[in-house]
Each structure stands twice: as structure tokens, then as C-alpha cells.
């Protein structure tokens, strides 16, 4: 039963990654792409982390998975912010590099 739930969660997470990649490829400009992928990879990794935690046998493994998801979520959010900020400045100054 638990492994069924884990499989569903992991599969759903993978779908979010696919959606994020499609958004990255199909959306026209930087800000839309950023929008697609920060949500997709944040949620996707959390779902896969939850699924993996259900499969974990030991407390140490669960702690590692929690740490991975926390690091990824924090750096995903910060990097999204930094990139958007940087891109907006670049637009304002009319630079392209």
C-alpha cells in the first residue's frame, strides 16, 4: 500500500519535471520560462522526495531526503529571484550580455 502511494507520488513528480521542461522549451520569453520552471521543479522534486521518503528504511535516509528537498527549494527560489532581477536590470540598461 505504502509503496503504491510512493509510486504515484514519484510518477506525479516526474510529470511536473516534464511539464517544466516543455514550458522551458515552448514559452516565448525569459520571464514566462522562469515562471514555468521554478514551479515545476520545486513541486516535482518535493513530490519525488516525498515518494522516496516513503520508501526509506532508516531515519538517516529520511533526514537526508528532507535536507536535499530543503536545499533544492531554497536555492531554486533564490536563483529564480536572482535571474529575474538580473534580467530586468539588463532590459532596463538595454544590454544583452
Amino acid at each position: 500500500m505504502i509503496s503504491m502511494v510512493a509510486m504515484v507520488l514519484i510518477g506525479a513528480g516526474a510529470l511536473f519535471f516534464l511539464a517544466g521542461t516543455i514550458g522551458l522549451l515552448r514559452f516565448p520569453d525569459l520571464h514566462c520560462q522562469l515562471h514555468a520552471l521554478t514551479k515545476a521543479d520545486g513541486l516535482g522534486l518535493t513530490l519525488i522526495g516525498l515518494g522516496a521518503a516513503l520508501l526509506a528504511g532508516s531515519v538517516g535516509d529520511i533526514a537526508r531526503i528532507a535536507l536535499i528537498c530543503a536545499f533544492a527549494a531554497l536555492s531554486g527560489a533564490t536563483c529564480g529571484h536572482l535571474i529575474a532581477r538580473h534580467a530586468r536590470r539588463g532590459d532596463a540598461e538595454g544590454r544583452d550580455v
Binding site: L67, F71, L74, S75, T78, L82
Partner: peptide, 14 residues
Amino acid sequence: GPIWQGFARLTLPA
């Protein structure tokens, strides 16, 4: 910016 500073304070020690 402030978001980076918060991130650095939280993440770098960890």
C-alpha cells in the same frame, strides 16, 4: 539583495 542575504545566512552554514 535581501533575498540572497537571507539565503546565504541560512544555507552557507548548513
